[in-house]
Structures are given as structure tokens and as C-alpha cells.
Design a binder for these strands. Structure first.
Lengths: 139, 139
DNA sequence: CATAGACCCTGTAGCAACTATAGGGTCAAG
DNA sequence: CTTGACCCTATAGTTGCTACAGGGTCTATG
């Protein structure tokens, strides 16, 4: 049984790219592991746990800054978890805003496409919809 | 009446930042205009039209590459507008995918937040939900 | 005529969050 | 002993801007 993971194994087990793991290390999200005689990174279970946490948070759309904050908070086990709740709720609100924006956009796109008579470009309603209301005057 | 617009006026009329206008020029989206004696950019109505088109497309979420393609197509007025339709539909499909992704995410976040008993960090369900299923073993 | 302030110029660096490349070193198998 | 898979560092690229730094120009006012 292997005592340590190579970066490649760690990456595979967390569905991460090797370069991304190194990037997380460089930006301080993942602590630098020990090295083998050949200068390879040697990861232990704590790295695997931490990287898993990071990936799961990223999958849920948290920014790296938010992940950093969550990780910091997660270590202070005796503090109340209100701050954690706040980060999650702020993120939820952001997701709701994005959904609303995309739905509005979707309606506009849909309307635009529905009008396309599929003739020539000259009479294309999509181009028309994207063009300024009337020929713009400069003066 | 002014014969030409300065970059600042053009930017104001299209709700664009001056730097963004220059960026569009540098990346070939907006043709380089003539210059005044003092080396200021002097824009005509064709620039105003084109920039308006770009901004409207961007507002609708098209990528700069898509905008480039739309602009190229818009100039070939005798060609059938199928290609335009295709770009718009591809974009719509992309928007639909994003909405679906965000809704799935929203459900997960919601579920996670609902479980938070708001005690200490040690018993926080949010941290738990973000952590790997069981303490990860390396071997 | 001088000067303040608003505007313009070029060029470069920065943001998020990676991803890709160049140019090497290490290690296990055959 | 060589092939090939993996690892290393460092740097540049991606998208779509945004923000300087360090100047020049133009207009209005004293």
C-alpha cells in the first residue's frame, strides 16, 4: 500500500487536472506537500480531503475566494457557523440573480429567433433585432 | 452640427467605456476610424451603428467570436440567413444549458442551507456537505 | 498669454480560474 | 539501455474587458 499519492493520482481521485492542483498550491488553497527524493510532490490523506472539499465547493459555484473563506472557517471548529451560513446564502442569492438574468435573456433570444423568416440576410429579423433602432445620426 | 464623434461621445452613446471601444478596435471588431489633426479618433455614423450592434449582441450574451461571425454575415446581404439563425439557436441552446445547470445547483445549495442548525462549526451541516463522504484513505 | 481641467493618446499589466506550452528530469518495464 | 509515462519549473495564453502610467490636446477662464 502506497504511503503517499503522486500529483497524478491525487488529480485522478478528485477529477482535477494536474496543472490545476499545482495552481491551487501556488495560490495558497492547497498546502505544499512534502517531496520525494526525486522532487516529486507526495500527498497524504489531508491533501486529498482538502482538495475534495475545494472541488465540491467549486462544483457548487463558490468562487476561490469563497472557498478560501469556507476553509478558514471550517478549521475553527468551536465558533458559531453563522459566517458559513452567510457565505452560502449570499451565493444562493447570486445564483438566483443569474437564473433570472438568463431567463430574461432566453425570452429575448426566443422572440428574436421566432421572427426569422429564413430568407436572405437583407431581410433577416435577427440582424434587424440586433441593429440600432434607426440609422444613427452623428450630429 | 458635429461632423464626427470623439471616442468619449461614441462611448457615451453606446453605454460603453472608452477603453472598451479601443479594445474592440485592437481586436478587429470595430474598424479603426480616421484621425483629427491632434491624433484623436474621429467616428462617423457607421461606427456608431456597428458599435451599437456589438453592444446589443453582447447584452444578449453572444461571445465576441459570435459577434464577429454575425457582423461578417450581416454584410453579405444576398446570402440566405440560415447561418445567422444557426448562431442564434446555438446560443439559445447554450443559455438553456446554463439555466438548467444553475437550477440544479440552486436545489443543492438550498438543501444544504436548509440543514444548517446554526450551532458551532464542528456540527455545521454545510461544511459536512462540502466535505468528502468519509475520511479519505490514501493507500 | 498662461494655466487648469477635461479629454485624448499609447502601451502595458491586471482580474478570474484555469489551461497549455516549452524544456527539461525521474522512474519502471522490457 | 531505451522507451514512454509520468513529474518538475516557469511562462504565456484564454475571455472580455479594466486600470494604470506617462504623456499630449483642447477649451475656458483669469
Amino acid at each position: 500500500m502506497a504511503a503517499y499519492l503522486t500529483i497524478g493520482e491525487l488529480a485522478r481521485r478528485t477529477s482535477t487536472k494536474v496543472e490545476t492542483v499545482r495552481f491551487y498550491e501556488k495560490t495558497g488553497l492547497l498546502p505544499a506537500p512534502g517531496r520525494t527524493a526525486g522532487n516529486y510532490r507526495a500527498y497524504g490523506p489531508e491533501h486529498l480531503n482538502r482538495l475534495s472539499f475545494i472541488r465540491r465547493s467549486r462544483d457548487l459555484g463558490f468562487s476561490l475566494d469563497q472557498v478560501r473563506a469556507l476553509l478558514d472557517l471550517a478549521d475553527e471548529r468551536d465558533r458559531p457557523c453563522e459566517a458559513i451560513d452567510a457565505i452560502a446564502k449570499e451565493h444562493l442569492a447570486e445564483v438566483d440573480r443569474k437564473i433570472a438574468d438568463l431567463r430574461a435573456l432566453r425570452r429575448e433570444l426566443d422572440r428574436m429567433i421566432a421572427q426569422c423568416g429564413c430568407g436572405t440576410v437583407a431581410e433577416c429579423r435577427i440582424i434587424e433585432a440586433l441593429s440600432p433602432p434607426q440609422a444613427a445620426a452623428v450630429g
